[in-house]
Amino acid sequence: MSTKPGKDPEKPEKEPAGEGLLSGTRRDFLKQSSLLSAIAFAPATVVKAAENQWPEKVADAFEKVDVHLEVNGTKYNVQVEPRTTLLDLLREQLNFTGTKKGCDRGQCGACTVHVNGVRINSCLSLAVTNEGKKITTIEGLANGDQLHPMQEAFIKHDGFQCGYCTSGQIMSAVALVKEGRTQSREQISEFMSGNICRCGAYSRIVKAIQEVKTNQS
């Protein structure tokens, strides 16, 4: 397995001890399952009892599958449960926490990333379906210390307050310009409406996009 930790502005810490136990095959898992029980500390009534009576079908379902994908130019080979979303893979396993979870249901846009250059909601995309794909997250937008013009414009026009929707807004805005949806203020607003900003920075986001668009043409 060649999983690499994501780019973390802070020093990456050691992988949690428990995580290693959970990868691998079902048989490994069954062994670890009793191991976990053995190392549990809490009162027996609270903590899971030792068990090894798994129905074959259920155990199969927990088996992880290999996924190869590229995030911000770096190739990853990761093992995930089929139910793991691209968003949770990015945030919880690869530590690309710049991509945000706001609703987990495709209703807010905070998790917007580019897959093969197209903006999508990573919360509704299973990681396994991204086999062989190129993912770009907010962490992959700048060129080293050189911010992407959209990032610069967001700072200049104060296109955010709390900052939590910002990654999604910027990823959406970069795609929007590429899509050519900047013909009018109305068009920008409409095609940025998949990104909710509760702080209400919308009009400033529009200004940032307009500036990037003007500077490009």
Partner: peptide, 9 residues
């Protein structure tokens, strides 16, 4: 319908 991101998926 939906949003640009959802329509892309």
């Amino acid at each position: 319908g939906a949003s640009p991101q959802l329509r892309n998926m």
